[in-house]
Nucleic acid binder design. Structure first.
Length: 272
DNA sequence: TCCCAGGCTCTCT
DNA sequence: AGAGAGCATGGG
């Protein structure tokens, strides 16, 4: 990837495989909002605006340090998608999904935000998930000049179910608080999970109330860098049965999370 | 109105 | 170990 650092923006020149809409609005992150031609949002406590211009990506509102320290990794720009997409395309069905959804990248989000976001996602629909998360940030996140940061575990751990009534998350409120408490107490150290095996990290996460296999996989994939994690929601389960004989194709296992994202996008929009 | 949502927990076999 | 009800809330 080639980067140009201007005074008012950072340019990613002709990036391979980075479609803003498909990446930011495909159900892996919930806080990016389209305003005009730009996607605006706060990630890692930093406000940014992104826009595609003639095949380049412009990023406004952040410093070079923000980019080097956070966004370069957030957008997974160091990963060789050329190799990975080729590899998972050894399966014909996945090849179709890749052709259809080209440009999706896995976002490396903050672990705690991923954890809470996907706890909220259970038995829920995407528009409502976004609403709940926005209310969570507005009520309990730190206000910056361009919006609210995602609340800290410390802040959420001090709340009661009644305090959380304002976000209207329903039965998930007790799960949010349980997660925040375990993280704050140190019982679960999210950063340390990166060093564990997939199985052990998964087991640790599922100690949290309201975290089962699917939510754990989402946290591992979107928050902790386990690119092999393959979240199985109702859509993916249907697709696995229908197209893949009930199991993940061998060629897609190493990069299961990326394959999953392309399959998810494909079956939800095209019904391939 | 009714059905269902990027599931999980709890209970009962 | 596997099946099924119930869960809070609201979008379509």
């Amino acid at each position: 990837m080639e980067y140009i650092f201007c005074e008012d923006k950072i340019i990613i020149k002709k990036p391979f495989c980075l479609d803003l809409r498909r990446t930011l609005d495909c159900g892996q992150a919930f806080r990016w909002v389209k305003k005009g031609n730009r996607f605006c949002g706060i990630a890692g406590g930093r406000y940014a605006e992104l826009e595609e211009v003639n095949g380049d990506i412009y990023i406004y509102g952040i410093t070079k340090t923000d980019f080097d320290d956070f966004f370069k990794n957030y957008f997974d720009l160091e990963r060789d998608y050329n190799y990975i997409l080729k590899k998972i395309s050894e399966n014909e069905k996945i090849k179709s999904a890749v052709r259809y959804g080209k440009g999706i990248r896995i976002l490396n989000q903050e672990p705690f935000e991923a954890l809470i976001s996907f706890i909220i996602s259970q038995n829920n629909n995407i528009p409502r998930i976004k609403g709940i998360i926005e209310r969570l940030c507005e009520n309990f996140g730190t206000k910056t000049e361009n919006g609210y940061a995602f609340p800290s575990a410390e802040t959420l751990s001090s709340l009661s179910v009644e305090d959380l009534a304002v976000i209207r998350s329903g039965f998930r409120a007790k799960y949010i608080i349980d997660a925040a408490k375990r993280v704050t107490s140190g019982e679960i150290n999210l950063e340390n999970l990166r060093k564990l095996s997939y199985d052990n990290a998964c087991r640790e996460l599922m100690k949290i109330k309201g975290v089962g296999p699917k939510v754990a996989d989402c946290v591992l994939l979107y928050g902790l860098g386990f690119i092999n994690a393959f979240p199985k929601d109702v859509w993916i389960k249907r697709a696995l049965d229908e197209y893949f004989g009930g199991k993940i194709p061998e060629c897609a296992k190493e990069f299961g999370g990326i394959a999953q994202q392309y399959i998810f996008y494909y079956i939800r929009s095209a019904e391939g």
